[in-house]
Design a protein around this nucleic acid. Sequence first.
DNA 1: TATTGTTATACTCTATAACTATA
DNA 2: TATAGTTATAGAGTATAACAATA
Lengths: 161, 161
Amino acid sequence: MSDPADPRNPSLPILDEDPRGRAARVGVAMLRFQNRLERRAAESLAAHGLTLAQFDVLANLAHGEGITQQELAARLLVTKGNVVGIIDRAEAAGWVERRPDPEDRRANRLYLTDAGRQLLARAFPGHSAMMQRVFGTLTAGELALMGEWLARLDRATAEGR
Amino acid sequence: MSDPADPRNPSLPILDEDPRGRAARVGVAMLRFQNRLERRAAESLAAHGLTLAQFDVLANLAHGEGITQQELAARLLVTKGNVVGIIDRAEAAGWVERRPDPEDRRANRLYLTDAGRQLLARAFPGHSAMMQRVFGTLTAGELALMGEWLARLDRATAEGR
DNA sequence: TATTGTTATACTCTATAACTATA
DNA sequence: TATAGTTATAGAGTATAACAATA
């Protein structure tokens, strides 16, 4: 498929086996896997009318109800402007509630509704089962190491911003 | 932040420490990291006017010029309908060319233009450097293992479709 | 009949920047 | 002055389904 003798396919060595590019190549594999994993997750959540972003909102609120929109923005890695739309949709669906902060009248505090909590409880098992099917292909020891490395990689992406 | 005694935060044990949920928890960490990585990659590519999807098109064509839109759809994991829009934009930008397949007049064969090849060559180093900053936090041995595991995980997401 | 690509439609998410009301 | 949230705008990507041309 990528015949180096093919004149239509001039050498792009940067994309091929570069001894210094080990790290980059694992990165490419990571992005490819992400694509698949994300689609699998989206599929499992769509059965409950949830997008991955909306699921993230519910999961974040389940762990820390009463956060502000800015705090949520920081967790979701999006701008405060984007959070308005995301919460607008979640609120319209009846999963989330904005409550004015009595101590700071600029701020909203975000809470799950009962419906939101119930939806999360319904959607989570399928999501978790899919994750277990995929990550269950790693042994317990491998999972432990993977967890450590992900924490390290996560720090590396957060740094130097 | 998530005080179990807080009545606003009724127990959602499915989201907490579940001894059987190791795999799922690593999966969640994976999605979080991938989210960050994707944003980092998008940032580095945006400096060249590229989205991650467009970069993916260029990289895929660099490895296999002359593929059809359906073949590209399969690689990008999107529908053929989506590929039309993606290639429309890439073609409008002058990076990619549709050439009718002389042997099957239904099909288009996709090729990089010189501009597309040059853009890829300009954008790749920054992308690769970012990847190396992030994945360089893993040792050579860890990278090798990570590569193996990602291949295994990738297969697990592709299976059972 | 099946396949390749296109069109049409609608929705979610994202980025940017100006705006308001409070602090 | 700075901060929390909103609004406005624009664009990319995605999903779905019906359609034309060709095989």
